[in-house]
Design a binder for these strands. Structure first.
Lengths: 159, 159
DNA sequence: CTTGCTGCAAAAGTTTTGCACACGT
DNA sequence: ACGTGTGCAAAACTTTTGCAGCAAG
């Protein structure tokens, strides 16, 4: 269990393939791999679903680490550039993100009652992206699909 | 041309079917049709594309009318409830809206370079919404589809 | 040692809210 | 009259930025 406790801020992070991806990205861009960036990436990797910057900040603090809000926001931007996370458009008030590395584009099903977000996949998402872009002469970059509905569970609660 | 210049704030507004829709909605909800709401609706009806609250505010002021920001935001909320406008998820910083009354759900094609927004329709949008909801036992409410790409025009500019 | 990075505090921008007064219905 | 609506100014929030000192490559 005695792993080198180094500047990464986490004993397990170094074994995450995504950590290497991020380090390569940073090097390629002439940027630096700092303890704060390691802590931030670690917190992101712990998320299984959509998350917000504020939540991530709180979780980092709760875990006993310290990364300032400013640094966290700056790191989230780099993680987007590195294509490790992507923005998810849930609402217009606040940014939501999720891990996207190596994944095909996914859609999100949001319960209008409980705000619970469920991810789903469908080949039609990419088809639609490419077809629409082709029809308009655009070069495809990305897609966001969000479906809103009432979950069975929320409907039961409101009887 | 001598139309009654009344509390609606616009001579033409009363002839807009959507004005009647809004008035009926307000009455049904026990709310009031005020000059400020008339001016706001009028400004919304003049928009042909996606718009933001801030732009709308400026346009109302430029047109020589006065509606406070607070009232405009409150009215936009009612217009959403009345299903006259709908939020469009372009980015997570600021709300974007568009007229939606009597329209099927549409998608939006956004140029990542110029931020220009083009609307498109596709029967697949509704199909997808209903299929996904059915698969998860959800009751469908709405959908948002945003495709990002580089417009031919933006590509030319960046050569 | 050179560049970039961090934290802090302040700024910026959008949206919301409390309150006193005004106004549709 | 009653219950809403309005404006204003302040508050609430998320995100960004300037700057002085600090650290990774």
């Amino acid at each position: 269990m005695a792993k080198a406790q180094d500047a990464t801020g986490s004993e397990d992070l170094m074994f995450q393939p995504l950590c290497a991806v991020f380090r390569r990205f940073l090097k390629r861009e002439g940027l630096k791999f700092t303890p704060e960036r390691a802590i931030s990436l670690d917190a992101v990797l712990a998320k299984e679903n959509v998350f917000e910057a504020g939540t991530l900040y709180d979780e980092i603090r709760t875990a006993g680490h310290h990364v300032s809000r400013a640094t966290l926001y700056r790191t989230l931007k780099h993680l987007q550039d590195a294509k490790i996370i992507a923005e998810v458009l849930i609402d217009s008030k606040q940014a939501h993100y999720e891990l996207c590395f190596g994944k095909k584009p996914v859609g999100h099903l949001v319960c209008v009652d409980s705000s619970q977000v469920t991810e789903f996949t469908s080949p039609q998402i990419e088809e639609l992206r490419d077809r629409i872009c082709e029809e308009h002469g655009y070069e495809p970059v990305s897609v966001r699909l969000v479906v809103y509905g009432v979950s069975p569970q929320a409907r039961d609660d409101n009887v």
